[in-house]
């Protein structure tokens, strides 16, 4: 009898933990949506800011986020995938395998602001790209590089050795085997990693703080070397700079809603893709 009571109390406590967790997270999402939805309009999505950031839209910030994120993927995807393919398919010496593994494991947890410092020292100052789309993209690219390498490696390792043997036994070369069988089989796994990385890159603020972002930029970036506005940074700037908080806050809500919606959609897509692909291979 006593046991039964203890058991019930225990279960009530862990149920409350879950409910509290969901409550807090739902609260955050609810407030952002409730207060942001009225701000969203066609003008908000497609026009540039006006009247010193107190009116108009945030289109340049949306565009900036897209440029930065795409730039990061264009840089990190070929690099990370090649690295994973080389490590997995070409049996290199233990040194490089271990070095990359240690690098990937340890850099995955490094604070994003530290990547910002690296970007500042290397891309902005040393290579002279200045505060620009290019510097920001490269910084974000390095930030997501470990995730792309490890997702690709995991996906390549999951391709059964028998598939490689089947292809080689038919007289395919190593390269044909990799391109025609190994990569297609690993692609869903790699794409999941890439999509999750896109979500991460789109939402990061600290790495672009001193490498790419500008509070206000007239129009869209016209070259890789120009500064950009970006959604996450724009939220920060609206809340901490400027002189009309009562007009800036609603715009910040709109930006937060956009950013949240984009990131949640991207990560949902990644997780749905992964679950679907997982089921397919089990059968």
């Amino acid at each position: 009898m006593k046991n039964k009571i203890v058991e019930n109390i225990g279960f009530i406590i862990i149920t409350l933990c879950l409910l509290a967790t969901l409550f807090f997270l739902a609260l955050i999402i609810y407030f952002i949506f409730a207060k942001g939805i009225s701000v969203i309009s066609w003008e908000f999505l497609t026009c540039a800011p006006r009247k010193a950031m107190t009116a108009g839209g945030v289109a340049p910030a949306i565009a900036g986020t897209i440029f930065l994120t795409l730039g990061a993927v264009i840089f990190a995807l070929p690099l990370g995938m090649s690295c994973a393919i080389y490590l997995n398919e070409y049996n290199p010496s233990g040194f490089i395998v271990n070095a990359v593994r240690i690098g990937v494991n340890n850099l995955a947890g490094v604070p994003s602001v530290v990547f910002g410092l690296f970007g500042l020292a290397v891309f902005v100052k040393f290579l002279g790209f200045g505060v620009s789309v290019l510097s920001g993209s490269l910084t974000l690219g390095i930030l997501i590089l470990p995730a792309i390498i490890s997702a690709s490696q995991e996906a390549l390792t999951a391709v059964p050795q028998s598939v490689r043997e089947a292809s080689l036994a038919l007289g395919a070369t190593k390269l044909q085997t990799i391109v025609k069988t190994v990569i297609p089989s690993a692609l869903p796994g790699i794409m999941t990693g890439v999509i999750l990385s896109i979500g991460r890159a789109a939402g990061e603020t600290a790495p672009i703080l001193f490498t790419a972002a500008a509070f206000y930029k007239r129009g869209y970036p016209d070259s890789p070397f120009s500064e950009v506005m970006a959604l996450p940074y724009h939220i920060y700037a609206l809340m901490t700079e400027g002189t009309r908080p009562e007009l800036q806050t609603p715009i910040a809500y709109g930006c937060a809603l956009l950013l949240l919606a984009i990131v949640l959609l991207i990560s949902s897509a990644a997780i749905i893709l992964r679950n679907k692909y997982g089921r397919y291979y089990v059968s």
Binding site: E165, T181, S185
Partner: peptide, 20 residues
């Protein structure tokens, strides 16, 4: 190896069709 494998085919212990 590539030339030899085109002349000498192989069928494995576990069926290993491609996911195609």
């Amino acid at each position: 190896a590539v030339k030899i494998r085109r002349k000498v085919g192989m069928v494995f212990q576990k069926p290993n069709p491609f996911a195609k």
